[in-house]
């Protein structure tokens, strides 16, 4: 079950300078009972209740993502797939389901906001970072190593090789990078409007609670109101009651 946060970060509460829809930086509390959360759940519920998406049983199949990438999209059996920049990696030669002309048969579009309100598109990013442990024996050498790895030439080589999205602006503007893969320029442009999940220790639990809420409206086990209420309870338990009600 994916895609909920793409909906949530495009709702009113998130786009009108309300900040992160999950976490309030000012009060350092997690947000419960927001309208945006319920709106996003309602969207998911509508998709499955009105049969606009896949069959519920297919959507909950643990191998659905593999089928989408390997069968449904290449065979032209799926109209819209809400996915990310990593997807074309699965169609490279040697991947088992190579699809060399994917960029001619698939169009790319940014995820719109709830009512098309500014900035008009939503994107979520995650990732990794190079870090030096506080107790490292030789932090200066480690820093020099990271500097070398992240130089323009090396970073460009790295992002082209693993079809990642560059974080250096000079790499992003480099034609060799921009043309390395179809779609790279499109995804790199989205970084300007991208959101990051709240990186706090409680987040994995919050993420699971979101999954559960989304799954329960998908199966019809719970209404939107019930699922949102369950999420609020789970959120309070997951964050030691560090919760604010919007």
């Amino acid at each position: 079950m994916q895609g909920f946060e793409m909906l949530l970060y495009g709702t009113d509460g998130a786009t009108d300078n309300g900040g992160d829809p999950l976490y309030d930086e000012k009060s350092r509390k997690w947000k419960a009972g927001t309208k945006g959360f319920k709106d996003a759940l309602a969207f998911v519920e509508t998709v499955y209740r009105e049969k606009l998406g896949p069959e519920v049983s297919d959507a909950l199949d643990p191998n659905i993502a593999t089928r989408v990438r390997g069968e449904l999209l290449p065979e032209g059996r799926l109209g819209i797939n809400l996915d990310g920049s990593w997807l074309p990696q699965d169609w490279l030669p040697g991947s088992g389901h190579a699809w060399p002309d994917w960029s001619e048969r698939l169009g790319l579009a940014a995820m719109p906001t709830q009512h098309g309100q500014g900035p008009g598109k939503v994107s979520m990013s995650g990732g990794w970072t190079w870090a030096i442990p506080a107790k490292a024996a030789n932090p200066d050498l480690a820093f020099a190593f990271i500097e070398t790895m992240q130089s323009k030439a090396n970073a460009r080589k790295w992002y082209i090789a693993n079809s990642g999205i560059a974080v250096r602006e000079d790499v992003a503007e480099d034609p060799a990078y921009a043309k390395a893969q179809p779609g790279i320029a499109f995804f790199t442009d989205l970084v300007a409007h991208t959101h990051y999940r709240p990186a706090y220790p409680a987040y994995p639990k919050v993420s699971t609670a979101i999954q559960e809420a989304m799954e329960s409206v998908t199966t019809g086990d719970a209404s939107v109101a019930e699922a949102a209420e369950n999420y609020d309870e789970e959120l309070a338990a997951a964050t030691d009651d560090q919760v604010t009600r919007g």
Partner: peptide, 27 residues
């Protein structure tokens, strides 16, 4: 492999529940 404990926890036996709590929720 077959169900991930789903749908909606309908095949989530104790080992799967344990895994979810310990490693997915990190508790």
């Amino acid at each position: 492999v077959m169900t991930r404990g789903g749908p909606g926890g309908r095949s989530q036996t104790l080992p799967l529940f344990m895994y979810e709590e310990a490693f997915q929720k990190s508790m």
